[in-house]
Design a protein around this nucleic acid. Structure first.
Lengths: 197, 197
DNA sequence: TGTACATCAGTGAACGCGCGTTCACTGATGTAC
DNA sequence: TGTACATCAGTGAACGCGCGTTCACTGATGTAC
């Protein structure tokens, strides 16, 4: 059952895409190779023609997920009405909380990464670095000390990621608390991003 | 090999204690019942005389871990030199980052909790609520609107948890970034806790 | 206080299951002539 | 352009392993008399 080179490439991409969604939704250990390949419309046997191991797929999926999330951030900020405040509101939305599968990889994996394969950790750290740089570049010009810009960007990122992680962790048992976390951070975060705090 | 009632109670407590440490260090799915009981000086066969399931142990360990962390927060703030700033500094320390096993349960488990058993989620949400209340009670009196106090407390908690999670996630591949995250948050966080922001 | 015995915490082998990975095989692709 | 054949993406059964959980058994505890 050989297949066109192009088809094979599409299959490979489909596996990475399905993995990116499933890993975010259920964690790296929560999904198996068989389920991922099934989600991509294949069987698990051919998996190792494309990837050396499940860990190698995890690293690649992690990298791709970060690239997409960063592109989305850039795209949103490039829109005519795009500013950081709107990005914060969408990041801290109930919609984002409830759709883990295509949400932020940091909010999906942060507390897991330390136990993953070194290649996964490397992709993750690169991705975090990319987010920090993107935020630094978009902070208001009134914060003019470059070191202060980085400090603010890091504080914002930590607040976004921690807030979404806590909102998701409490969504099942304490939905009001979960909603309160999101609403509170939407109200408080702009203060960190603007010099008038 | 029966054993004194008191010994049995001690064994049970030892299992919960070992579980609390191992689960924080390696995650709920990263440690097995056999390893936990071994760490408590027992064999795995007797485990089910004490707990209905691994999930039941996870819930109990989670609750106990939160209670200890909260007690530590209260104790630190009760000291003569105790203030929120010192608590932030110790939370955001390299020491805390590198000692997952007896650190904050939120920074250890946040992104995992959504996939755990309902009982674990309930303990976790209770624990988060407890932390929020403790922070609200300790914010400077100058923040006098009760709703603003809660908002600030939630923003602080999200920043602490997200910051520690990101610092740990990047510690392996990007140690300078990891250190920068901690140092930046130590510098930026007091602004969230004080009215002069 | 002393004795007989039921209880039950603890042991270690075993069970069943799902997982990551391997393997013999298939058959259309794409290359060599 | 047409033909022969090596390649290799994909299949599905199988392997080995570790896990959560069960179970028959042990023997000191602690209770009943």
């Amino acid at each position: 059952v050989k297949v066109t080179k192009q088809e094979a490439a599409e299959h490979r991409a489909a596996i990475v895409k399905a993995a990116g969604r499933l890993f975010r939704e259920r964690g790296f250990e929560g999904v198996g190779v068989a389920e991922i390949t099934r989600a991509a419309g294949l069987t698990h046997g051919g998996f190792y023609r494309h990837f050396a191991s499940k860990d190698a797929l995890a690293a690649e999926a992690c990298g791709k997920t970060f690239a997409e999330s960063l592109a989305r951030l850039q795209a949103r900020l490039a829109r005519p009405d795009g500013d950081l405040g709107r990005y914060f509101d969408s990041y801290l939305s109930e919609r984002h909380r409830d759709r883990r599968a295509d949400g932020c990889p940091m909010a999906a994996h942060a507390t897991d990464i330390g136990r993953q394969d070194a290649a996964v950790q490397a992709e993750f750290a690169d991705g975090v670095g990319g987010f920090v740089d993107a935020l630094v570049a978009r902070l208001p010009a009134a914060i003019d000390d470059p070191r202060e810009r980085r400090r603010r960007a890091l504080a914002i990122l930590a607040t976004l990621v921690g807030g979404m992680a806590l909102a998701r962790a409490t969504a099942g048992s304490a939905p009001e608390l979960s909603g309160e976390i999101l609403a509170s951070l939407r109200a408080e975060l702009p203060g960190l991003a603007h010099p008038d705090r």
